[in-house]
Design a binder for these strands. Structure first.
Lengths: 125, 125
DNA sequence: ATGAGTACTTACCTAAAAGTAAGTGCTTAC
DNA sequence: GTAAGCACTTACTTTTAGGTAAGTACTCAT
């Protein structure tokens, strides 16, 4: 009834759906990808991250950092300076997300542009 | 203090963070990307989608479909058969998400593999 | 000694997302 | 005529993500 116009078979489709759901299971939520991106860009301390990822509260950031550390996306380095400096660093594993992050950022940029255009159109109505 | 080991300047970094947050604003949540992927793979009806995206309830699916239609990711085609068939179709705009979806799926697949391996390791402890 | 900064934690609260269960109005099949 | 399928909707509840505000323990600068 509905033609299967896809190159991939049904199984491969079902699989990629499953994989996307799996990925979203670890990366889902409002802050995980932004925080990872922030740290991937360069190692940072708590307050720097909180400042860059605008809108995140210290509580939520602490939560996310713990979660990301547990899932091996970031490393929490404690330097024995006085007072101790704590620097969050991206692991090699989080670098496997670079393509995802790049595509998402590119898409977000284009989407923003599209929204901006449709807004200015509506302004004339 | 912390060296900026990135090729991109600070501004470009801040921008990509912003874009990712923007993207997540429309695509965030548990079901949006899975539902889009499902429909991008081929046009489908309500019950087919509900069956493929396992775990989604009819209420949530109806909600997501409305939202995705409003945001121009999908089209709701009503065919005047008896009874009417309603077929959800991906728009050209949702095709701009193909790269994002592909990267996410690839990553999810590798992540699943990694988890599987670390699980079997733990089984011997 | 007062205030500011770092890196959080704690307690509390609310709003939104999601789940459950059932119902509706239609049609076709048995 | 009874049941089942389609495409939902409605009402209700639960979950959980996230926000607010304040506090803590430390140190450094003035």
């Amino acid at each position: 009834m509905i033609p299967d116009d896809n190159i991939l078979g049904k199984e491969a489709c079902a699989d990629s759906l499953k994989y996307v759901i799996d990925a979203l299971y670890v990366l889902g939520g409002k802050w995980k990808l932004p925080v990872i991106l922030c740290i991937v860009q360069s190692s940072k301390r708590f307050n720097e991250i909180q400042h860059e990822v605008s809108g995140i509260s210290p509580k939520v950031l602490a939560q996310e950092l713990k979660d990301l550390e547990m899932n091996d996306f970031i490393r929490r380095n404690v330097y024995p300076t006085t007072p101790v400096s704590i620097i969050y660093e991206a692991t090699e594993y989080s670098l496997t997300l670079k393509n995802v992050l790049r595509e998402l950022s590119t898409w977000g940029e284009q989407h923003r542009e599209r929204i901006r255009r449709s807004m200015s159109k509506k302004a004339y109505l």
